[in-house]
Amino acid sequence: MTALGFLYPGHSAEDDYPRIEQLLGSDIRLDLVHTDIGEDAHRVVDALRETGSAERLAAGMEGLRLAGVETVVWACTSGSFVHGWQGAQEQVRTLARLAGMPASSTSFAFVHAAREIGVRRVAVGATYPEDVTTLFVEFLRAGGLEVTGARSSGVVTAAEVGTWQEEDVLTLARAADVSGAEAVLLPDTALHTAAHLQLLEKVLSKPVLTANQVSVWEGLRLADRRVNAPALGTLFTRHPLVQA
């Protein structure tokens, strides 16, 4: 049994995780602990930084230690990339020290996943306000990716994003897709996407990477596991290209 741990801020799309667990197989367990988000405000960068503070992450780690997980992922994209590349690295190092195990975050998972499927040019479809989306684009570029275009939806709370349905997700992905992009990235862990991955890739005719999908893949990568699960998209159907 491989047990993966996730620190997830608040309550929005956490039901993606049991859905993904079911698709992965019986020898993988996904344990999720909710962290306090403070102010639910995508529009306020300082609030997003506080969401991923060492104190909040430490408070969530005790439950994961008791669960006996092998790796931990901070399953919050905006709560990591708002610190910039160097700041997000320090956040992960702090989390690894707190956890006493390999650690990462959803922001780094996107960069590692893009490398895994062999794409460099990506388009971004974000639920965030434009200024927050810009910070994600800068993070991806610092990770060596070329962002061919970015679409912002301007949603200011994770709670609202959590109510989006399949057609909302498809609309965002279509709007983000631009000529020359090899893949489309949807970076909000508050967005339900686990049930829509095959449809998204069919409609766009290219790989789609989503926040909860890449978070789970990153946990598996840290545990040195690779799983073939076609329902979870291209990321889970290719042989690994790199060990990031």
Results as ranks from 00 to 15, higher is better:
Leu4Phe: 02
Ser12Cys: 15
Glu14Lys: 12
Glu14Ser: 13
Glu14Asp: 11
Glu14Gln: 14
Asp15Lys: 11
Tyr17Glu: 08
Ile20Ser: 10
Gly25Val: 12
Ser26Ile: 04
Asp27Pro: 12
Asp27Ile: 09
Ile28Thr: 15
Asp31Arg: 15
Leu32Thr: 15
His34Pro: 14
Ala41Ile: 09
Arg43Asp: 05
Arg43Cys: 03
Asp46Glu: 14
Arg49Ser: 03
Glu50Asp: 14
Gly52Pro: 14
Glu55Cys: 09
Glu55Asn: 05
Arg56Cys: 02
Ala58Thr: 07
Ala58Ile: 03
Ala58Asp: 12
Ala59Phe: 00
Gly60His: 00
Gly60Pro: 11
Gly63Glu: 11
Val73Asp: 02
Ala75Thr: 04
Thr77Ser: 10
Ser78Asn: 04
Phe81Ile: 05
Phe81Ser: 06
His83Asn: 12
Gln91Leu: 14
Val92Met: 12
Val92His: 08
Val92Ala: 08
Thr94Phe: 04
Thr94Met: 13
Thr94Glu: 15
Leu95Cys: 02
Arg97Phe: 00
Gly100Met: 06
Ser104Gly: 09
Phe108Gln: 05
Ala113Gly: 05
Ala113Cys: 11
Arg115Cys: 03
Arg115Lys: 15
Val119Thr: 11
Arg120Thr: 15
Gly125Thr: 10
Gly125Val: 05
Ala126Asn: 04
Ala126Asp: 03
Thr127Pro: 07
Pro129Val: 12
Pro129Trp: 03
Asp131Pro: 07
Val132Asp: 03
Thr134Glu: 06
Thr134Cys: 07
Phe139Cys: 05
Phe139Lys: 08
Leu140Thr: 00
Leu140Ile: 01
Leu140Asp: 04
Arg141Ser: 09
Leu145Ser: 06
Glu146Leu: 14
Val147Arg: 03
Val147Glu: 00
Gly149Asp: 05
Gly149Phe: 01
Arg151Glu: 02
Val156Thr: 15
Glu160Leu: 13
Val161His: 09
Gly162Ser: 01
Gln165Asp: 10
Glu166Ser: 14
Asp168Val: 10
Val169Arg: 10
Leu172Val: 14
Ala173Tyr: 00
Ala175Thr: 06
Val178Phe: 04
Ala181Asn: 08
Leu186Trp: 02
Leu186Glu: 06
Leu186Ile: 13
Asp188Met: 01
Thr189Gln: 07
Thr189Cys: 10
Ala195Ser: 14
Leu200His: 06
Glu201Ala: 04
Glu201Ser: 08
Lys202Thr: 09
Leu204Asp: 08
Thr210Trp: 00
Ala211Val: 09
Val216Pro: 13
Val216Phe: 07
Val216Tyr: 04
Trp217Lys: 12
Arg226Pro: 06
Pro230Val: 01
Pro230Phe: 01
Ala231Cys: 09
Ala231Phe: 01
Leu232Pro: 09
Gly233His: 10
Arg238Ile: 02
Leu241His: 14
Leu241Pro: 07
Val242Asn: 01
